[in-house]
Design a protein around this nucleic acid. Structure first.
Lengths: 370, 370
DNA sequence: GATCTCTACTAAACCGGTTCAGTTGGGAGT
DNA sequence: ACTCCCAACTGAACCGGTTTAGTAGAGATC
């Protein structure tokens, strides 16, 4: 059996309580005794039992992440693995672990949160894929567990948010296309129940408005390849079909680009395409995809850090805003087809291309890392 | 505060012990009393505290999965998300959860296993990406925790394995290429420290031997896109360059196909390409990739199930063999270039194409699901 | 030198379950 | 009627920590 606090107490010739004080840096033991206890603990190789700690302090020393995506879609999205890796970097420094659940099917998500909370598995949750009027926010309030949301929800939320602005990346994509002379720039949106689905659409609308162009080429989809393909087919069927499509993520862009090519269109000759996320494989598409390089690892690390700070009461409750992702121009975007360019918009000079992922400060400005 | 076992005992007018017996289906309480206790527990909405249960029974009610891949590679591999989703389907039925750790950097992996074990976080581990002479096997024996390995390790292992044969898929790919008239069929291997890297290479060698062809076009890589691209470049530089390349995974195949196209080669006109894994995006490549459709979700479910059975002592210790994955023929493979085909091997008739993922029985044959 | 106060420490309760060692009461056996 | 036995149940110990209440002893105060 493993060595317990009683063994240490016996070895050091003190009581259990004294050992507990000494090892938690609490007052109540003299410097000499403390030293003796620490020495004994080290010699015996004592590791406090998290189970016992958890029982007496009513903590789980774990954070929860519930993923409610379709498993088949999960595998295609590069976001989660990197996001999780980021969480780990923050957790590994404190004795916390990540409890991951995948909920599939209606109602499964809520059951999942309830179960983890009621079983006392976790001390807090990381909320991803925040939805319009997200039901998980009142749920977690009911369950009385702290949380951190990725981006600020559109409903009232008492939880701090860690945000990475969608708007800038989409705006940059639209501006890039406008500069290339495109005037019919469509958007294939992600699920509009997600706030990032909505915000990307809104960013597209505003950017077009700024450029004095109509935002009438919208097709809703669901972030899946199949959805992106169907939406693309719909757009290309129109008489006023677009010369460029801004997709809400890479997977839809990949499928859309593929579909356009099967229809005999050249990318970017006849149709320019942009994605979002910078999935690894997009640089090996033919043509490589112009996309927006997000930093899911950083996001995960900061979100976990904020949640941990909240648990140790050292968080100020403020939202954290991460640096906005930047556009990565590759070969899937090009000048608008001849005869399509607006009269006063000749092919512009070379567009500034961000080839490197942007530099991020090690710690975001609004966070106080201990 | 939540309702405890004492509350239930008081409500039912019995002792704590009786409640414990009643709720665990143990003998020692009469049917009537049992009924009364269950009734009281239900009325009070009692949920047993996993923390307390864990402390007294020295269990964690969790399984561990340590992923030792580079985070950037993690995001590109569709295996893990699907595998994890499979694990979840098995765990959700029992009150178990998954503790996920991402270990990066030398030594981090072992520290990770040790930490989870010493902290009593998990009751067993799922071992993926098994390596040649894998050091984790003696490690876990030392830590005295049960485990399940994906595929049988090449060193002595006391742990049951859940295997999905690599050989059949690669063999089918080679046979498919041979039938198309190819005689110079290369292999870009995954990391040869991994047993699946080795077994895929061996499968390629044997299949070529069976076809009476030499296996001299091998290039080692590391399952990454960059590695696949470099290996492809190396192969295409040779004077006896291949007309077909069998890659050990989709990511390398994607990068390789892309590289070949940038060099002015037509796929499959000049070069046929096959992948492995059936990552979702591969069907949207140009051309769509011929690949081997594995079932990571099934794999995860069965592996978790075997480990759970082991924990409840209901596992027989036998290995479980899952149905071998099948070849999915798409457009990245075609007849060998003219003048390249073997004299007596005309373009063959249409090759049978498995368009559907294979049907798997709900429960694998060698497993006894309760 | 008696009291007062503070530090350093101990003993025991506690978290919420499981489990072991007894105790009780009723029915069978003789 | 007496023992014997077993099912049914209780009380307490236990898992390994934290925390509270209480105590011994040293030093300061008057």
């Amino acid at each position: 059996m493993a060595v317990t606090i009683s063994d240490v107490a016996h070895a050091a010739g003190v009581s259990k309580g004294a050992v507990s004080y000494a090892l938690n840096g609490q007052p109540g033991v003299s410097a000499g005794t403390r030293e003796r206890i620490l020495q004994a603990a080290k010699e015996l190789g004592w590791k406090p039992s998290l189970r016992a700690k958890g029982l007496s302090s009513a903590k789980a020393f774990a954070l929860g992440l519930v993923v409610a995506r379709d498993p088949s879609l999960l595998g295609t999205d590069p976001f989660f693995p990197a996001f999780i890796a980021g969480i780990e970097t923050a957790l590994s420094e404190h004795d916390y672990t990540l409890v991951l659940s995948v909920a599939t099917g209606a109602g499964a998500e809520e059951r999942c949160y309830r179960k983890l909370a009621e079983n006392g598995r976790v001390d807090g949750f990381l909320l991803t894929d925040v939805r319009h009027d997200d039901s998980r926010i009142p749920l977690l309030q009911e369950l009385k567990l702290p949380a951190v949301t990725l981006n600020r929800p559109d409903s009232d939320s008492p939880f701090p948010a860690v945000s990475m602005d969608d708007c800038a990346g989409i705006t940059a994509a639209v501006e890039h296309l406008v500069a290339l002379g495109h005037t019919r720039i469509a958007h294939v949106g992600g699920g509009q129940e997600y706030i990032h689905g909505r915000s990307r659409r809104q960013a597209w609308e505003s950017a077009l408005a700024t450029a004095g162009l109509p935002a009438d080429l919208f097709e809703a989809a669901d972030f899946t390849a199949a959805g992106g393909m169907a939406a693309t087919a719909e757009l290309l069927r129109r008489t006023d079909k677009p010369t460029a499509i801004v997709y809400a993520n890479d997977l839809m862009a990949t499928a859309g680009q593929y579909y356009a090519q099967t229809q005999g269109l050249s990318v970017p000759g006849d149709l320019s395409v942009t994605g979002y996320d910078n999935a690894d494989f997009t640089q090996y598409l033919n043509p490589p995809l112009t996309t927006v390089a997000t930093e899911p690892m950083l996001w995960g690390r900061v979100a976990a850090q904020v949640l941990l700070n909240q648990l140790s009461n050292s968080h100020d409750g403020e939202d954290t805003v991460l640096q906005a992702p930047t556009l990565l121009v590759r070969a899937s975007t090009g000048p608008a087809p001849a005869g399509e360019a607006a009269p006063n918009a000749p092919v512009p000079p070379h567009y500034t291309c961000t080839q490197q992922a942007p530099q991020h400060p090690d710690t975001p400005p609004t966070l106080c890392f201990p």
